[in-house]
């Protein structure tokens, strides 16, 4: 879908609905889902940590798919989706790392350990942060778009590793849905699903909002360029 400033009101409405749904799903987390026997109350971090991590990976999947599409069709609209998705992905994966560190301190007694899941996630965060730095460089827009698309495809190599690291290598990070049934109580599963869907709504809203804004910014830049030529 080509981004346009008209996405801004849709994105705002979606983001507001997602934010409200996420706030409401806290009732399920703290009232409905039981306190886990081993971890106790600390396990509740999982209900915010998991949606943050999953939607960060979804953002990077958008960057990957959008970058391939951009290289095939050279449509700047696709590039706007990639830019917005990468910003949101870096934000959400950063927040997932921070909430994970809090969990780690309580569960493992350390803020950080060079575990495969944690290491691949940190590498992913740095690579996509680099993508945003590339976005900020002063270079011709068409060249920058191609460079970002190439990086957007190459960077995605780390994403399946992040997802599979806890299953492939000896990792102390729990692989939530690795075993059949996931080992979660039905009430816990309901809370996880509610939080993940609410975060998804918020994610879709932020993505539409930011993409619409980038489209608006590009139109204004074109107008400023034209006005500059007239002067």
């Amino acid at each position: 879908m080509p981004p346009s400033p008209r996405h801004i009101p849709t994105g705002s409405a979606l983001a507001a609905a997602g934010g409200l749904a996420l706030a409401a799903s806290q009732w399920l987390v703290f009232r409905h889902a039981p306190v886990e026997a081993t971890m106790g109350l600390t396990q509740k971090i999982f209900y915010i940590h998991l949606p943050l991590a999953w939607w960060a990976l979804a953002s990077f999947l958008v960057v990957f798919a959008g970058s391939i599409l951009f290289l095939l069709r050279r449509n700047p609209a696709t590039d706007a989706w990639c830019r917005a998705a990468c910003e949101i992905g870096v934000l959400l994966s950063g927040l997932a790392l921070l909430t994970g560190m809090l969990w780690g301190r309580q569960a493992w007694g350390v803020w950080w350990t060079w575990d495969p899941r944690l290491t691949t996630t940190l590498v992913m965060w740095f690579v996509y942060a680099g993508y945003l730095v590339l976005r900020g460089l002063d270079m011709p827009a068409p060249r920058k778009r191609v460079a970002c698309a190439v990086l957007g495809i190459a960077a995605f190599c780390d994403v399946p590793l992040v997802f599979l690291s806890a299953r492939l290598w000896r990792s102390i990070h729990p692989a939530v849905f690795a075993s059949k049934g996931g080992g979660l109580e039905p009430e816990m599963k309901l809370a996880v699903i509610a939080c993940t869907l609410s975060m998804g709504l918020l994610w879709a809203g932020l993505l539409a909002l930011r993409t619409g804004q980038i489209a608006q910014e590009e139109r204004i830049e074109t107008l400023e360029g034209l006005a500059g030529q007239d002067d």
Partner: peptide
């Protein structure tokens, strides 16, 4: 534990 959970939510 409660402080940690609140802190994690606040960060997010």
């Amino acid at each position: 534990a409660l402080t940690v959970v609140v802190l994690a939510n606040a960060i997010a």
